[in-house]
């Protein structure tokens, strides 16, 4: 008998609780609905504030840039200085397009292997050296990019007597890319589950084999995403190349030649007193944007393919 009462008691309090909770939620429902409406309106406003400038910018870019980039000469010709007889003879920006490609290529060749290796090392080691390198790369990541240009200028252009050149510019860009690659590689490698490492070790693999054959492949999507991010950043940088590449008016891929670059052409053309050259700026900007867009898009597609294959 006493067992019965003990059983009934808790059930009743349970019901009371339930009714209580229901009535509270009933009362708060109206309030919650109002709050939710306000939040929706605020979110829409925030979206508008963000989207409007972006749309305006893109409109401007395409509206003014498209007419420029539709001429084949824009890609194949070297720049010309307009004259009073031919005020619209601006030539093209073949040197800047080639220059940007060359700079990015050399910078990648320098920064990617070093960056990935250092990133892997940071993720796998707890040594003092690793801690120091981590602090250095984090500091470098936050350093203003003109500093890299200044460094490349005084060190490579002047001290090493290399002169204004593609190599000096790509060195500055490489230094800029390096911390991005190091940090993203470290994060990607740290994200690889510990159980995979152990599985490798338990099969008698040496630690370096585990790093190279198991951890690195498993981290590759993250690493490549970081590399693309670094390249996208480097492509658009003006400050570090401004001081060192020399703005060559020739098509050259040679490391020691002075070259031009798309951001540099934008900078120079925008200062020009010829309206035709100032109009050309939008075409150059459009090409630059398309470069970066294609790069990051292909990286995303590649990464998602890779992810699906798992």
């Amino acid at each position: 008998m006493s067992d019965m009462t003990e059983l009934v008691e808790p059930v009743e309090t349970g019901h009371q609780m339930r009714d209580e909770i229901r009535s509270i939620s009933e009362r708060s429902r109206a309030r919650r609905q109002v709050r939710s409406r306000i939040m929706v309106v605020l979110c829409a406003l925030a979206l508008l504030v963000t989207a409007v400038p972006l749309v305006l910018l893109l409109f401007q870019l395409f509206n003014r840039g498209l007419p420029v980039v539709l001429h084949i000469g824009f890609y194949t010709q070297l720049p010309q200085t307009p004259s009073l007889i031919a005020p619209n003879a601006t030539g093209g920006v073949s040197n800047a397009i080639l220059g940007t490609l060359v700079l990015t290529l050399y910078a990648s060749v320098m920064a990617i292997p070093v960056g990935v290796l250092v990133g892997v090392y940071l993720a796998e080691s707890d040594s003092k050296l690793a801690a120091t390198l981590r602090v250095i790369s984090q500091t470098m990541a936050g350093a203003p990019s003109i500093l890299m240009g200044l460094f490349a200028f005084s060190f490579i252009v002047r001290d090493l007597h290399v002169g204004f050149s593609a190599i000096a510019g790509s060195f500055a860009l490489a230094v800029l890319m390096l911390p991005v690659i190091v940090i993203s590689s470290e994060i990607a490698v740290r994200g690889v589950p510990h159980t995979l490492r152990e599985a490798g070790l338990a099969l008698g693999a040496k630690p370096h084999k585990v790093s190279m054959k198991i951890v690195l492949p498993a981290a590759v999507t993250g690493i490549v995403t970081g590399i693309i991010l670094a390249i996208s950043r480097a492509i658009g940088e003006t400050a570090p190349v401004l001081l060192v590449i020399g703005g060559g008016y020739i098509n050259s891929w040679k490391p020691l030649d002075p070259v031009s670059a798309l951001p540099l052409s934008i900078y120079e053309n925008a200062k020009s007193e010829w309206p035709s050259l100032r109009t050309e700026v939008w075409g150059i900007a459009l090409v630059l944007v398309v470069f970066v867009f294609v790069l990051s898009l292909s990286a995303r597609i590649w990464a998602s393919r890779k992810q699906q294959a798992r």
Partner: peptide, 21 residues
């Protein structure tokens, strides 16, 4: 250690095949 681990194999609690292979 390497020889030991080739002679003494291990299977873990959660299946952990190498995902990229």
């Amino acid at each position: 250690v390497t020889e030991l681990r080739t002679r003494v194999g291990m299977v873990f609690q959660r299946p952990n095949p190498f995902p990229t292979m």
